[in-house]
Amino acid sequence: AVCQRCQARFSPAERIVNSNGELYHEHCFVCAQCFRPFPEGLFYEFEGRKYCEHDFQML
């Protein structure tokens, strides 16, 4: 399997985020606008991209 964002493979010891069947490295699972991790894992999706609450409100 490969990361949805960076397309790199996962190492066996690595923590992986699964979002609706899409797999991400922990450091790749970030807001599409500000590139920060999601507070408490909370995000909003718009047109296939994931956003933090602040950036989602700015759309």
Rank of each mutant, 00 (worst) to 15 (best):
A1Q: 05
A1N: 03
A1P: 01
A1W: 04
V2D: 09
C3L: 01
C3Y: 00
Q4T: 13
Q4G: 09
Q4D: 15
R5Y: 15
R5E: 13
R5K: 13
R5W: 07
R5C: 04
C6W: 01
C6G: 01
Q7W: 12
Q7V: 09
Q7R: 08
A8D: 09
A8R: 15
R9W: 11
R9Y: 05
F10L: 13
S11T: 10
P12I: 13
P12V: 09
P12A: 14
P12Q: 09
P12R: 07
E14T: 06
E14W: 03
E14N: 04
E14Q: 09
R15L: 06
R15V: 09
R15N: 07
I16H: 06
I16D: 05
I16Y: 07
I16M: 13
V17L: 12
V17I: 12
V17P: 01
V17W: 03
V17G: 04
N18R: 07
N18G: 08
N18D: 10
N18T: 05
N18H: 05
N18Q: 10
S19W: 08
S19I: 08
N20G: 14
N20V: 14
N20C: 11
G21A: 11
E22W: 05
E22T: 12
E22M: 09
E22D: 02
L23S: 12
L23K: 12
Y24P: 04
Y24L: 10
Y24V: 10
Y24G: 06
Y24S: 06
H25A: 00
E26D: 09
H27K: 03
C28G: 00
F29I: 12
V30S: 09
V30D: 01
A32S: 07
A32L: 05
A32G: 10
Q33E: 13
F35H: 15
F35V: 14
R36M: 11
R36T: 05
F38A: 05
F38M: 06
P39C: 12
P39D: 13
P39I: 04
P39S: 09
P39F: 02
E40A: 09
G41K: 05
G41Q: 14
G41Y: 03
G41H: 04
L42C: 10
F43R: 04
Y44L: 06
Y44H: 13
Y44I: 11
E45L: 11
G48F: 04
G48N: 14
G48P: 02
G48S: 11
R49C: 12
R49M: 09
K50Q: 11
K50S: 06
Y51M: 14
C52Y: 03
E53N: 12
E53V: 04
H54E: 15
H54K: 14
H54N: 15
Q57H: 13
M58C: 13
M58Y: 05
L59Y: 07
